[in-house]
C-alpha cells in the first residue's frame, strides 16, 4: 500500500503544492501576503460551493443547480439582506429549507437527483432574474468588512479556507451525524435497518448543502460588492471538479471535506497559473481540463496499484 492511497488527502495537497511552487516561480509577485490574497480570495466562495456539492455527492446524488442557487443567494444578499436584514435572513432560511425539501422529495418519490436539481436550477435562475433584472445591488457593509479583513500573518483567503476545511471536517468525519450521512452514500439499506429515517437524512444533507450554498453566495457578494443573476453559474461544474480533485468519489459516500477545499483552491490556482503563462484563451479551458485529468490520472495510478494488490 502506497502512502498516497493510505492517506487520500496527500495527493490533493501534493498537487496544490506543486502548482503553487510553479506559480511562485512564474510570477514571484504572488509570493506575498497581498499576492496570496489576490490569488485565492475568489476561491473562498468556490470552496463553499464545493462543500455544498460534496454534501450532495456524499449521499450518492449530484447537484447541477448549485451554480444557479449560489447566484440566487448572492442576489438576495445584495438586495434584501442589505436593505432589510431581517427579511433577508428569512429568505435565506427559506432557501435552505427549500433545498432540504428538494432532498426529501428526491428520496420520497425516488426521482433522479440530476434531473430535479437541473430543473430547479431554472427556478433559481428565474428567481434571481426577478430580484435583479439587471446587475446591481450592494453588499451589506459587514459582509464586505468580513471578506476584506486583513488578519495578521495569513491573508483572509487562507484563513477562511482553513476554517471551512476544519469545520466541515469536524462535521463530516468526526461528528456522529456525519458518519451516518456518509453511511447513506455507502450503504443506505444498512442505515435504514439501523432505524434511521432516510428521508430525514437526505433532507439534512441537502439542507446542509443549501446552507453552504447560501454562505457561498454571501461570500461572493462580500468580494464583488454586488451581484447579478448569472454571477456564479460556472460554480456548478467547478464544484463537481473540486470534489473529485479533492479525493472524493461519485459513489459510496467517499468524500473528504479538507480535500474538497484544496480541490477548489487548486482549480482557482490552475486558472491563474495559465493566465500567468500567457496562454491564449482558446487553449485555456483545454489546459485546465488537462490539469484536472493529470491529477485524476495520478490518483488512479496510485489507487489502482493498491486495488490490484488487495
Amino acid at each position: 500500500m502506497t502512502l498516497f492511497s493510505r492517506y487520500r488527502i496527500l495527493l490533493p495537497i501534493a498537487s496544490l503544492a506543486l502548482l503553487l511552487a510553479v506559480t511562485f516561480y512564474v510570477q514571484p509577485r504572488t509570493m506575498s501576503y497581498f499576492g496570496l490574497n489576490l490569488l485565492f480570495n475568489l476561491a473562498v466562495p468556490i470552496a463553499l460551493a464545493t462543500i455544498a456539492q460534496m454534501l450532495i455527492i456524499m449521499v450518492n446524488d449530484i447537484d447541477l443547480g448549485i451554480g444557479a442557487f449560489v447566484s440566487l443567494a448572492a442576489c438576495v444578499a445584495a438586495t434584501f439582506l442589505e436593505q432589510s436584514p431581517l427579511i433577508g435572513a428569512m429568505i435565506m432560511a427559506a432557501l435552505i429549507l427549500s433545498y432540504a425539501l428538494m432532498g426529501a422529495m428526491i428520496h420520497a418519490l425516488a426521482l433522479p437527483a440530476i434531473v430535479v436539481t437541473l430543473g430547479m436550477s431554472f427556478v433559481w435562475g428565474g428567481l434571481a432574474l426577478f430580484l435583479l433584472p439587471s446587475p446591481g445591488g450592494t453588499s451589506p457593509a459587514w459582509l464586505r468588512a468580513i471578506m476584506t479583513v486583513k488578519p495578521p500573518l495569513m491573508p483572509m483567503a487562507l484563513v477562511a479556507a482553513c476554517l471551512i476545511a476544519g469545520v466541515t471536517h469536524w462535521l463530516i468525519a468526526r461528528a456522529g451525524i456525519g458518519t451516518v450521512l456518509r453511511g447513506v452514500g455507502g450503504n443506505a439499506d444498512a442505515v435504514r435497518r439501523a432505524g434511521w429515517s432516510l428521508v430525514r437524512l437526505k433532507a439534512l444533507a441537502y439542507g446542509l448543502a443549501g446552507l453552504f450554498g447560501v454562505l457561498a453566495g454571501m461570500a461572493l457578494v462580500g468580494l464583488t460588492t454586488s451581484a447579478d443573476a448569472n454571477i456564479a453559474l460556472r460554480y456548478t461544474l467547478l464544484s463537481i471538479a473540486g470534489v473529485i480533485l479533492g479525493g472524493g468519489e461519485f459513489t459510496g459516500g467517499k468524500v473528504s471535506p479538507a480535500g474538497a477545499v484544496i480541490g477548489a483552491l487548486t482549480l482557482a490556482l490552475a486558472a491563474s497559473f495559465l493566465s500567468f503563462m500567457r496562454l491564449s484563451p482558446d487553449w485555456q479551458i483545454g489546459a485546465q481540463g488537462a490539469i484536472l485529468i493529470a491529477v485524476l490520472a495520478a490518483r488512479l495510478l496510485f489507487n489502482g496499484r493498491d486495488g490490484a494488490r488487495r
Binding site: 510570477q27 509577485r29 504572488t30 499576492g35 489576490l38 490569488l39 480570495n41 475568489l42 466562495p45 461572493l220 468580494l223 464583488t224 447579478d228 448569472n230 454571477i231 456564479a232 453559474l233 460556472r234 460554480y235 482557482a268 486558472a271 491563474s272 493566465s275 500567468f276 500567457r278 484563451p281 482558446d282 485555456q284 479551458i285
Partner: peptide
Amino acid sequence: DAYTTSENQATEQAAQIQNLILQG
C-alpha cells in the same frame, strides 16, 4: 497585451483582473 476569459463569467473575469494586478 490582450487577455480574454474563456467562459464569459463575471467571477472568472474578477480573478483575471486580480491576476493582472499581480502581473504588475
